[in-house]
Design a protein around this nucleic acid. Sequence first.
DNA 1: GTATGTTTCAAACAAGCGTTTGAATAGTTA
DNA 2: TAACTATTCAAACGCTTGTTTGAAACATAC
Lengths: 208, 208
Amino acid sequence: MSNKRSTKTKILDAAEALFADRGFAETSLRTITQRADVNLASVNYHFGSKKSLIQAVFDRFLKRFVKELDAQLIPIEQGEQRPTVDEVLQTLVAPILAIDAKSDNGSSNFMKLLGRAYAESQGHLRRFMQEHYAGYIIRFTKQLHRSEPGIDAKEMFWRLHFMLGTMIFTFAGSHALRDIAQADFSESVTIEQTMRRLLPFLSAGFKA
Amino acid sequence: MSNKRSTKTKILDAAEALFADRGFAETSLRTITQRADVNLASVNYHFGSKKSLIQAVFDRFLKRFVKELDAQLIPIEQGEQRPTVDEVLQTLVAPILAIDAKSDNGSSNFMKLLGRAYAESQGHLRRFMQEHYAGYIIRFTKQLHRSEPGIDAKEMFWRLHFMLGTMIFTFAGSHALRDIAQADFSESVTIEQTMRRLLPFLSAGFKA
DNA sequence: GTATGTTTCAAACAAGCGTTTGAATAGTTA
DNA sequence: TAACTATTCAAACGCTTGTTTGAAACATAC
């Protein structure tokens, strides 16, 4: 392995950005390999198929994400005091910010991909994620439940999904939202700013 | 025009369901015409192109929607009393329920399509909707603002989009959510039930 | 050096796509 | 009935897609 970016990495980088921007079906392998400056056949050589490439993109992303999430969850899990809703929600913030640190604009590749995975119809991606990362969702949910023990499991389930929905939709949102905001209020929009607006909305809704 | 469903209608019906389920790029004209039981060429004959067909599907949907929305907004607009947030949000409920009345499962074709339109990258759909239906958004926003005059325009903008995001994500959500809920709580999930859970979440968040 | 295994490359493959064509049919008007 | 328009149909078009192929280039070992 040389110190230059490997072909595999170059493909993953290009695919990640393009999938997030355009979607899976709308992004051809030719577009990816062109942007990555590698040969067309190298995708199938290194990843086997387009479907496997999609999973590899997610796997790399989620590995980074859950590593951060884990670090955030541990102190809360070990705390004797029960956490507040805001504290639990905060465990998601740092990972998202850390992962998309490089992306200068207000949107998040990670969230965009999550949104696309959610909309994806065949569901092979959902199955893949369910298999490999369900444990983290359970840990997060457990702490959320600890923060508001009064809310029963069924209600919890729905409010959690409402929250996730809002987050994913907001950060996955195409440039539309950001552009409108920029035009109407001439304020540049970063992930952190949006996050600051979003969290009170979420925790108020959750405690409703 | 005979009393049988016309070819045009059959195409629109099939396309609507398939686009909502699988997305635009993932749905071929051959799949649509097969399901509609019409000839492949009839799409181009009646609509001109696939892109125009997509717009036609949205146009039919939105026409129904805004007709209902208009009826809901008028009494509020004419009321001297300023409306509550919940009353304003309710103006969206009836149209959504009315439009997807036929769909028995808990998801909404209309919302699914909205979600897909939002994710769509080229944006020709967003432009089309902006051109034809922006007036209704303004009317709705105006009433929302009237309900909580304390919230300034910028904050309003964001919270409105948080709300829309949650709604679209929730109702556009693939079967995943519904399936999990059904498995874990053995409760069948209708749009109305989900709406009942969602609205308090939204209005609490909005007033946060 | 030669030999061996790994990676790249241009070219081609079959399959599916949206669209077009021109003839056949159905429907309407005179 | 005859003339004319609107619609349907099977077939084909050109193009893009994901994938495969076999030779070339590179790397590593002996």
